[in-house]
Design a protein around this nucleic acid. Structure first.
Lengths: 188, 188
DNA sequence: TATTGTTATACTCTATAACTATA
DNA sequence: TATAGTTATAGAGTATAACAATA
């Protein structure tokens, strides 16, 4: 049985990793962990209704949410993936009859991905489950607390977005102080 | 270029999805999204140093963090995956020389997965990068704000953990009100 | 009988590079 | 030349079911 308590770095963390911030690491681990837990549980609850992968549903939701067909390149951009990956995602969805490829009216190099009635049915089935489960997940947070959470997330999102547009530096950071190696460090 | 603003449900959201909570959905989408962004950016920054998957590194970090070899079933449980998946994850790590399989001293049905020196080197290389990047990601949040974020996450985590131990209900939830179908609904 | 781990199988997601057709 | 998308290829992660060894 997985442990539901917050994961916390140990007391010697900042000695072991010179230049690191214990609270930042705690936030990072628990943010990633809570997000994963959320997605995993949503997927589990959706499965009895419609068995579709997270990525495939994302494509569907992007097109359905837009309300109009979109080129694969745009969908790929929003999902932060390559056009090659998008091709096979669309292949999967076409095979299941959930989207179809239309020629682009202006530029014959391009396509438009359109959602089918069956695809819309899937979205209509999944979204209510998603919303019901979601409501339950956040039931312990008051309305002001939710807004607070959103504001904190927004600021992290903005910062990470800036970082995404920077080249990843390749010079080694402060090495680990292995003299301080402890038995409880980072189990995720 | 991906949009870095918060994703928000539209004004007609709660009419379109009777019984849904707009703020809960906003929290869910942005929590999952921020978590994914974080992980993706961490992976991108780690790649120049060591090219290892998130799942593979997780195995390594769990064993290294424990400080002593662990049976595959325990690692699988902590990662919320099956033993079959764990077998192939361990296969990958053994192929790269980062872990090794040892016989369990007490129960001959079991194994112990031990991290090798090379595996420890990988962890020692990756953790400092992780911590440096993490510090940058949360630089806009003050120390009290970080603690606040952690407390909010803890409460969501606890609730989701309760839900994980319940059977997934299979009765259909409140249907979508498709008369209210809008053009901007849920792009993630 | 129950448990631990492996095998076999299959599917999905992912990325890269070479290719096409169009612009 | 540049762009949009596909194909080919490859590898990783995931799950399920059948199985062997052991308890």
């Amino acid at each position: 049985m997985a442990d539901s308590r917050l994961k916390r770095q140990g007391d010697s963390f900042e000695e072991e990793f010179p230049g690191a911030s214990r609270s930042a690491s705690d936030c990072s681990i628990n943010l990633a962990r809570t997000g994963s837990l959320l997605l995993a549980e949503l997927t589990r609850r959706r499965r009895p209704f419609v068995d579709i992968s997270v990525a495939a549903f994302q494509v569907l939701a992007i097109i359905e949410g837009e309300g109009t067909p979109l080129p694969p390149s745009i969908v790929a951009e929003r999902m932060v993936t390559t056009t090659g990956t998008m091709t096979s995602l669309i292949d999967t969805l076409v095979r299941r009859g959930l989207v179809r490829r239309l020629p682009h009216p202006d530029d014959r190099r391009m396509l438009l991905i359109d959602i089918t009635d069956a695809g819309r049915d899937v979205v209509d089935q999944i979204l209510p489950v998603t919303h019901r489960v979601t409501k339950e997940m956040f039931q312990d947070l008051s309305e002001p607390e939710r807004q607070q959470l959103l504001q904190l997330l927004a600021r992290v999102q903005r910062r990470v977005d800036v970082m995404r547009n920077e080249a990843a530096p390749t010079d080694p950071p402060q090495p680990r102080n292995t003299a301080q190696r402890s038995a409880q460090t980072a189990t995720k």
